[in-house]
Design a protein around this nucleic acid. Structure first.
Lengths: 345, 345
DNA sequence: CGTCGTTTTGCAACCGGTTACAGCAAGCTA
DNA sequence: TAGCTTGCTGTAACCGGTTGCAAAACGACG
């Protein structure tokens, strides 16, 4: 029923091989043969079978994008960046949600291996470096986007989270805050610890001592932000500003603050990280550190394609570090133009 | 280099056929042979090649999800619903962003045809019914999710937008509003015209005459919502409430309202549609009609699988209509407990 | 112990392309 | 005109699985 290359060959009076050559633009075919084949192709409505092709060429022109949950507003932007770039090179994206659960990651990897994807972009990984190195053994190219993995020597693209954390904290310091809290992400995750590091650096550069009681560990979720901020706010001497390791937690933090009848930024200032779409809503106006998510995806995709199409196995891992950019909106209080922050009452 | 079924066969001293049978759980294999094969499989770290398999079975266990733009907060939820369900059946999702551009849709369809996906879920379509029927000719199953297409007899799952529009408008009427505006989506899109219809029905049921000057045509974007609301607000006699055909436009409308120094809901009430994550943010609290997006995706996926695995070509198109549900938050003013809405001053 | 019905297993074709290699025709050179 | 290129095309093997069919192995029965 479906029309195959053989049908095209028959109709145009040539062999399968020639049809194949025409369709792949191998420039040895005589012009009139080429035309005849093309004509037959059109007449028959022939669609080549990528499976069959892939079977011999070992290429599927498909790559997987692994995220924890596409509903996390960080990821759609990344995904779009990935897809747009991939499209330019005629690749496709397979979307994989893992919820950050290692067993789901495992399952997906196995599946992707079976489907013979050409490569994988990990926009989130929970697995250890050792699991990833199994991929390398297999010769399956991959790149890490938005997260590094200690010990894995793989292509990576991230923003400079240390710098971002530094900028955010510095900004708050310049507004006069001296008690600044930090709501972190899960322990061990590079994005979180790096931002923490930047936070501490900024404090130190201003002669302040980072105090452990001012950092609450969160988990990158809204609830985590809420809980973390709550803890900080119920301190004997609560912070006058809070830097959250990502915007979603900042949203949760806002909630915690409002719930206590406090005002943002008058009573407590907030800075987030990522600049997800929420952040710029008129009713939110979250000051945050912008993470170039679309670019992250696009760059990761480009690096992956580079790896795929130029598989020098000994090529060094490439690291791309994107610059973060502080976006000043209203939750930091900058627009109030004061330099002494409000301790309540 | 890569280990194939032949290697497994050799190592376990049986034929390729037997290995294949073991791996596919065809229960004719003697128990000890089975074990031997399994053992060899593990020892060799064999991963079957889905391409090769698909070549003969005609199944890829991959389906495509076509959306206009995954960054539109409506779609990630849908995508997640799709993927979760698909995973249960061991299918994968290929993500396709088309920006609602017909030529991109075309290009993708061609590609998906080549890649031999088992089916397609259109969460947005711009193409006409005729293009889709070409797919049917080809025997490629698909389902429409969240949008119907007049003239296409295809499986469809949508919410009852007429009812949703009715509920939203009715709610505003019950709060005492009599001048209610409507900001529509693009002309011709079922979701938009159906909601409009519900809006008009509600008005009529309350003895009100729908007035054309109270409907502004938008395009489902924030800017469109802004523009539409702006137009309505600058009417000689502006509405005291506005129903927006989706939440994103409602966000835009809020902007327009604030910009004029007006208050929501005191001066003008707003109701949206979809209940995207934005809507429930503490600082927004948009009253809206909830669209069960996750379910939409999951149901669409289930229908598609049904089609795929049971390809009775004469089976009637199935229509699933999900019930909308009004979610009352604050932008409608319900919490104010008044029954006479505020015309300004 | 031969026969026969059941399992089990292997053979070989096939899925639909790609590609190394060989063959043939025409054009050039000597 | 013989001998070489050069240009174009066909043959056939191969990619790595699945599957219809036939053969082998097995156990039971008479």
């Amino acid at each position: 029923m479906p029309v195959t290359i053989k049908d095209v060959a028959r109709r145009s009076g040539v062999s399968k091989a020639t049809v194949s050559r025409v369709l792949n633009n191998i420039p040895v075919v005589r012009e009139d043969t080429r035309r005849a084949v093309l004509e037959a192709t059109r007449a028959l409505g022939y669609t080549p079978d990528a499976l069959a092709r892939g079977l011999t060429t070992k290429k599927t022109r498909t790559v997987a994008l692994v995220v924890s949950d596409i509903r996390n507003p960080f990821f759609p932007e990344v995904a779009r960046g990935v897809e747009d770039l991939l499209n330019n090179y005629n690749y496709n994206v397979m979307l994989c949600n893992t919820d950050g659960r290692p067993e789901k990651e495992e399952a997906y990897i196995r599946l992707l291996l079976e489907k013979r994807v050409d490569g994988i972009i990990f926009a989130s990984v929970k697995m250890g470096a050792s699991d990833l190195s199994r991929l390398q053994k297999r010769g399956l190219p991959f790149v890490l986007a938005g997260r590094t993995l200690p010990g894995a020597d793989a292509d990576v693209v991230v923003v400079d989270s240390v710098l971002g954390g530094y900028q955010a904290t510095m900004h708050l310091l310049q507004l006069g805050h001296t008690r600044i809290g930090y709501v972190s992400g899960p322990a061990g995750v590079s994005a979180s610890v790096d931002r923490h590091r930047g936070y501490e650096q900024a404090l130190r550069h201003n002669g302040l001592d980072p105090s452990p009681e001012l950092v609450a560990v969160g988990d990158f979720t809204q609830e985590g932000g809420y809980a973390g901020a709550s803890r900080l706010l119920s301190l004997e001497k609560p912070p006058t500003a809070i830097f959250c390791a990502n915007d979603i937690m900042a949203i949760g933090a806002l909630e915690a603050i409002y719930e206590r009848g406090l005002k943002v930024p008058e009573d407590v200032a907030i800075v987030g990280f990522d600049d997800i779409p929420f952040a710029r809503l008129r009713n939110i106006q979250l000051t945050t550190v912008m993470y170039p998510k679309y670019d992250l995806g696009a760059i990761a995709a480009r690096m992956l394609i580079e790896r795929i199409e130029n598989p020098a196995p000994d090529r060094l891992a490439k690291q791309v570090i994107l610059p973060p950019r502080l976006i000043i909106r209203r939750t930091c209080g900058f627009h109030l133009g004061r330099s002494t922050p409000g301790a309540t009452t």
